[in-house]
Amino acid sequence: MAITLYDFELSGNCYKLRLLMSILKLRYDIVPVDFYPGRQHKADWFLRLNPFGQLPVLKDDDLTLSDSGAILAYLARKYDDTGLWFPDDPAITAEVLRWHAVADDITSTASAARLALGFFYDFDVAKAQKGAHRIFRLMDEHLWFGEREGRDWLCGPAHPTTADIACFPYVMLSEEGGISRQDYPALRRWTDRVRRIPGFTVMSGVFPAGRALEEA
C-alpha cells in the first residue's frame, strides 16, 4: 500500500484526510498543490487527476479518488480495523452520509467566507456568513440535545465517526471567515471533544485542546 495525498496545507478539506489518517496511524506521502495563489488545482495535470478541479485527491496504489467525504469513507472502510469510523450498518451509514452532506454545506458557506476574507475570492461574504450561522444553529441544537440524551457526537453511536471529521475543520476555522461561534456553546464543546480524540492533529488556525479532567 502506498497512499499519496494531493494536499494544500491551508485547506480544511485536505486536513480532514490528514486528521483521519493521523487517527488511523496511516503513513502517506504528500504532493503539495499550490491552490493559492498558484491555482494549480485548475492546471492540466491536476484536472487529469480530478476533472472537477477540487482538492483533495488521494491515490492509493493505482486507485485515484477525489471528494473529501468519499475519501473519508474509503479510508475508514479500508483501513479502520475497528469498523467504528464508518460503521457497516444501514441506518448509521445513512446518518453519517447525512452529515457528510452537511459538511459540504459548511464548505460552501463557512469555507467560502474564509476564502473571501483570507484568499481574496470574489464571494458574497454576508450571504456565506448567514448560511454558516444557519447551519451552526442547527448543529448547536442537535449537539445540545445530544448532551441531554447522552450522545456526544453528531451521529448515534457512542463514538465519533467520519461525520465528525468531515464537519470539524470549517467549523473550527469559521472565525477566519468572520463567523463567531459565541452563540453556539454546544458546538464549541463538541470541538473540544473532537480535539481530544487520540491521534488528533492540528493545522494552521486549529489549536489543540487541553486534556480532559478524566485524563488529567
Binding site: 448532551e147 461561534r181 459565541q182 456553546p185 464549541r188 464543546r189 473540544d192 487541553g210 486534556r211 480532559a212 479532567l213 488529567a216
Partner: peptide, 10 residues
C-alpha cells in the same frame, strides 16, 4: 451546564 471541567466558555 455550559461549563464542564476543562472547557472555556465564550
Amino acid at each position: 451546564e455550559d461549563l464542564p471541567y476543562r472547557h472555556v466558555y465564550q
